[in-house]
Design a protein around this nucleic acid. Structure first.
Length: 649
RNA sequence: GCCGAUGUAGCUCAGUGGUAGAGCAGCUGUUUCGUAAACAGCAGGUCACCGGUUCGAAUCCGGUCAUCGGCUCCA
């Protein structure tokens, strides 16, 4: 198999003892990034290549073969279709094909039907290794289904991309029909595959998408057909069921049901409106982080939402992201302003506004800064990818000697955040420079130093991370937190970046002990990343049932009859006086003339952690009926006991 | 931005060329109730928008917009 080498030890951690499931995301991640050719980055640990683990599973081969089976069906039904690549991916497979006429979703049914028929024909799948010349001849051989000069475009390119000395193999799906005629379907592929098409039984074609050839926007867009395949009907069923369930925890659906946020086409795409409950959630998160930041010596700053474009020309953002900025504004003096897409230049201006001494450093400026980025329309996804969002941003200005400790401190705050939010299914990625790209600014030694600062700090902290070339910011390498959403899609959350370049561009200085000016280093960091994205993610992780400290409403007081409404409000006042986790307890009272059952049902659907029921018996005895979101009816108890239970979480 | 799909009442959805429907939510009235939906009535829609075909369009055709699944991208 073809490998791309990465430094030994570069990828670690999540792959501990990894086989199958935990490796799949990596295969998926890497495939399509480097290629054109079916390539997977090897997973390297302690000098040993482990990448083949998933490839060696039966499921991987089954899905790979399912892709071939689909290709066979497609070449029969659409003779002019040009095949390109068709790898297995997490949960299934796809094949990228160029069609002469656009494929519609309703066409999938007939392709799937033909696949079922072809599967039953019990075609043997055989590997043949051939020379480069023979391979070319086969690809151009019109007598073989799916081959011939008319449809060879991509396969020939794939063949060319196979390095000298590496085996060139085809997989042949063969059968002989009742009349004794031989049939075959041949595809250039390094395999491996299952033994016969008969094994491919439990699959379903899922969707159509456009995908650029070799993942490059400049290339032609091919039609990608996604399918899922499993070893048993039960597994297929379970997977489809899981997708249905995942939809129910989609943050966009829960966001509406729980009245957290909304969108309006009258406002604009990707511009969320935060409703009272969602805004409360934001406040709670902001309070929490502010408190952590105060403990760690951060200073708050506040900066405007627009700025003169010159500021961003100087920082380099305009060159790199002009098309991702909202349209520019011009004032009477012909000065051009932009909606701010980044907070850093503002913080830099504040730093540069005075002479700084080494005694002042480190300086840590923190701001919940709302930024606006004109994301491509196809990218916007609820609050996970919005055009207006708030970063929990901070910039640290440090001396070279302080860099290591400050970086460690920043990673520590990120860990505190993760722990508090209850997030434990994530991975860390060190995004480094892609040597083949020219979008990066600054000197190589600075890049090296910054990258080393990150990896050293991670090693020191025993943090598991992987290195991903090409995922750096244009001004510096970064450490990103990556988390999956309900549908298994990965999102970049918190981030830490070491930056030598912006201080240079803005000629930042501090006076050191030697009495001479020196250049500080900047650390950019945002533990949540964006409040929007983090809340979207949390909503999905908890399926809307937020932990007590985060819940927008923590207690719903439910009076049984009208005469209990007043005592219910009194109880609510009393509870609101309490402090839980630094904030006053959030209480609602449902004093509508509805049955208790209905009030309970609605509070439960709103995922309120505690319901407190108040009726005649309670007023007589000084008790309340307590019901928890998780455990249901807890029975009557004195008010004080409820408070005690509540405060202990 | 590109490929594919979807837009009917606040929400979930019926309705394939002939007078716009249901449940929930809302409003009014009755019921004052002890752990997941009381009962009755009323009101609510330019069928996303614009244009076309037709005697007649939610329905057929074209365009636009929004949303969803991907691709690419995310300072």
């Amino acid at each position: 198999m073809q490998l791309i080498s990465v430094p030994v030890g570069a990828r670690r951690g999540p792959l501990e003892g990894a086989v199958g499931r935990s490796i799949m995301p990596y295969c998926r991640l890497i495939e399509g990034r480097y290629n054109g050719v079916l390539q997977f980055i090897p997973i390297v640990r302690e000098g040993k290549t482990m990448a083949t683990a998933y490839e060696q599973t039966y499921l991987y081969r089954l899905r790979h073969s399912a892709a071939h089976l689909m290709a066979q069906a497609v070449t029969e039904l659409y003779p002019g279709a040009k095949l390109s690549i068709g790898p297995p991916v997490e949960n299934g497979f796809y094949y990228d094909i160029e069609f002469e006429t656009p494929l519609r979703e309703e066409d999938l049914a007939s392709i799937e039907k033909r696949m079922k028929e072809l599967s039953k024909l019990d075609q043997r799948i055989e590997r043949t290794e051939v020379s480069r010349d023979d391979a070319k001849a086969l690809i151009l051989d019109e007598s073989i289904p799916g081959m011939g000069p008319a449809v060879a475009e991509y396969k020939l390119q794939l063949l060319d991309a196979i390095p000298e000395g590496e085996a060139i193999s085809f997989y042949d799906q063969k059968r002989t029909d009742r009349e004794g005629v031989h049939h075959r379907f041949l595809d250039l592929c390094r395999g491996p595959h299952v033994d016969t098409t008969k094994e491919i039984k439990h699959f379903k074609l899922m969707s159509i998408a456009g995908a650029y050839w070799r993942g490059n926007v400049k290339n032609k867009q091919l039609t990608r057909i996604y399918g899922t395949a499993w070893e048993s009907a039960e597994e297929l069923e379970a997977y489809l069921h899981m997708l249905e369930e995942a939809k129910k925890r989609d943050h966009r659906i829960l966001g509406r049901e729980l009245q957290l946020f909304m969108f309006s086409s009258k406002v604009g795409t990707g511009l969320p409106l935060w409703l009272p409950k969602g805004a409360t959630l934001r406040d709670v998160m902001v309070d929490f982080l502010k408190k952590e930041q105060v403990k760690r010596g951060y200073d708050p700053v506040v900066t405007p939402n627009i700025a003169n474009i010159k500021l961003y020309e100087k920082s380099g953002h305009v060159v790199n992201y002009r098309d991702k900025m909202f349209p520019f504004m011009q004032d009477d003096e012909d000065e051009i302003y932009i909606l701010k897409p980044m907070n850093c230049p503002f913080h830099i201006e504040i730093y540069a506004s005075q002479m700084r001494s080494y005694r002042d450093l480190p300086i840590r400026y923190a701001e919940f800064g709302t930024v606006y980025r004109y994301e491509q329309s196809g990218e916007v996804a609820g609050i996970l990818r919005a055009r207006g969002f708030t970063q929990d941003d901070a910039h640290l200005f440090v001396t070279p000697e302080q860099l290591q400790d400050e970086f460690v401190g920043v990673v520590d705050i990120m860990r505190t955040v993760l722990q508090k939010l209850g997030l434990n299914d994530f991975r860390m990625r060190v995004g480094t420079k892609d040597p083949s790209s020219d979008k990066y600014v600054g000197h190589d030694d600075n890049w090296e130093a910054a990258t080393k600062a990150i990896t050293d700090a991670c090693d020191k902290l025993g943090l598991d991370y992987e290195v991903s070339p090409g995922d750096a910011a244009f001004y510096g390498p970064k450490l990103d937190l990556i988390i999956k959403d309900a549908l298994g899609r990965e999102w970049q959350m918190g981030t830490v970046q070491v930056d030598y370049n912006l201080p240079e561009r803005f000629e930042l200085e501090y006076i050191a002990e030697d009495g001479k000016p020196h250049r500080p280093i900047m650390i950019h960091r945002a533990p949540f990343g964006s409040l929007e994205r983090m809340i979207g993610l949390l909503t999905e992780q908890y399926a809307g049932a937020f932990p007590l400290w985060l819940s927008p409403v923590q207690v719903a007081v439910l009076p049984i009859a009208d005469r209990h409404a007043e005592p219910a409000h009194e109880l609510a006042h009393k509870l609101r006086e309490l402090i839980f986790d630094t904030r006053n307890v959030r209480v609602s009272v449902d004093d509508r003339r509805e049955t208790l059952g209905k009030k309970i049902r609605e509070a439960q659907l709103q995922k309120v952690p505690f319901m407190v029921i108040l009726g005649d018996k309670d007023l007589e005895n000084g008790t309340v009926g307590v019901r928890s979101r998780e455990d249901g009816d807890l029975g009557a108890m004195p008010v004080e006991e409820f408070i005690r239970r509540f405060l202990t979480g």
